[in-house]
Design a protein around this nucleic acid. Structure first.
Lengths: 148, 148
DNA sequence: AATTGATGTAACTATTGACATTACATCTTC
DNA sequence: GAAGATGTAATGTCAATAGTTACATCAATT
């Protein structure tokens, strides 16, 4: 399993919501068209972001809005909102502890240290990226293509 | 997709091969029993490790052996041997570049920087773990349970 | 209050990928 | 040549992901 596309879609939605703020009412249908996804999929992602306290989604009328400072929202927060077990689920160890082999009985513990190192590295990398930095990059890219 | 169990099985095999060196002839059947996996799966893993120059597997007779210093074999080498696109495949971005929305057209580029950061972090974490360090941890664990 | 358009969810389907298994050709040693 | 091992293609199985349909609920407008 990978860092699912849900994560990239979520970032997409958050940037969209930020850019549309005060301009348009952002509905799941609109986001579905922009992301090439499905309104139901979008709603489930927005629901997760909502539970994490990153956005508000008024019921009935729609119109999602950020409810936190983009500079304070990290990629790790976004990812964690979507994936219950977070970084842990990125890694799998084959089950074999019941085997009569000493390697089999200890491989799990042997792998724990290096795998934890990887998880921590991923978390740190995600925490070092904020929504604001991605919005800034987005603006720079739009500016570039406007000049071309 | 995740760092597949192939990777943990591969480490399992390499430790097994190291420990059995000079004691027993390590066949895919033996490794399958120890890992709780299947001889064919083991053979495909050994084949990848062989191509990466980490082990030798004599045809016909079997008896895999390390052909590199465990202190020089990193987890990243092991993982890269198994997964063709390495760390890149850990991450997915939804396809939407053909959409008429500026966010859709730029989201791929916006995500490249943070995702590259994650990949680099994973690679570094993997490179900092050697087979030797895992073998050492394994020995310590065996020693512990012998004392208990 | 009826209509419209939106969200919140459950349920189902389709697809993909990982792993397991079968089968068989090939190779080495005895 | 027989036995046992590897190399590999082909198939089966299962879980996870994404897409879709359906419908209850809600808020604003008329």
């Amino acid at each position: 399993m990978q860092i699912s596309m849900k994560c990239s879609v979520a970032v997409h939605c958050l940037i969209f919501i930020h850019e549309a703020s005060g301009i348009a009412r952002v509905t799941s249908k609109l986001l579905a068209e922009s992301t090439g996804s499905n309104p139901v999929v979008i709603r489930s992602i927005l629901s997760a972001l909502k539970k994490a306290g990153l956005i508000t989604v008024p019921r009935g009328t729609g119109g999602a809005q950020l409810c936190a400072d983009p500079a304070q929202i990290t990629l790790f927060q976004i990812y964690s909102a979507l994936e219950p077990n977070g970084v842990t689920r990125l890694i799998g160890i084959h089950p074999c502890q019941d085997r009569p082999c000493p390697v089999a009985q200890n491989i799990y513990k042997v792998l724990q240290k290096p795998y934890k190192k990887i998880e921590d590295a991923v978390q740190k990398a995600m925490e070092s990226t904020t929504l604001q930095s991605m919005i800034d990059d987005f603006h720079a890219l739009v500016q570039q293509s406007a000049n071309a």
